[in-house]
Amino acid sequence: MNLTLRVWRQKSANTSGQFVEYKATNVSTDMSFLEMLDVLNEDLIKRGEEQIAFDHDCREGICGMCGLVINGKPHGPLGATTTCQLHMRTFKDGDTITIEPWRASPFPVIKDLVVDRSAFDRIIQSGGYVSVGTGGAPDGNTIPIPKEDADKAMDAAQCIGCGACVAACKNASAMLFVAAKISHLSLLPQGRVEQDMRALNMVAKMDEEGFGNCTNTGSCEAACPKEITLDNIARMNRQYMKALFKSNLS
């Protein structure tokens, strides 16, 4: 099939960008979205134009590296799907597709469709580490964990830190991401020991990095390729409030 692509091109963080239109011809429906861009990039180089920079790594939906806003939606039109797992069969011959980077001030554009997501790394660092040794798998199983807690912790642990939640949010809030990390650890006994400090520090860092607050719109949940749910944010808020009161008492 043949497509018209409107791609955001921006040379660096300090220059302004603009949409550039490209024709993608003979696109196979079996290609992934990123493979379609690979083929376009080969064509561009042969024409003497610089290739479009975009982030990618595992291309199997588990690393969190890829992420494009496709037709206004982070990771494109399919639910629970990363950009790399989106295939061209989702589109129709003759379609015009608009491709943008994540748009959020804490995620400055580095080049074209690549943004700097190191703010997420700094939030993770601010959470510190879990000081309780968990041992190997058999040792881990000696601590009984209710099935419901284990399931909820594992659901939260699905977060791959891609930043689609921030890109989807009108407030550029990172609360779904931070809530997933906080929930993942505090639902398990080993992670509970440091949960108060973790919640206080990660929330403070999130604010310091310039991410907005949650207004319960839910677009993050809709965009999340790993289906992280809003109740994680409620859990984070409860935990943050408890930790705040406790820290004021002591």
Partner: peptide
């Protein structure tokens, strides 16, 4: 080989 772009910024090629 044809490597476009510059050496001082992000250059996937």
């Amino acid at each position: 080989v044809n490597v476009l772009g510059e050496g001082n910024d992000l250059n996937p090629a």
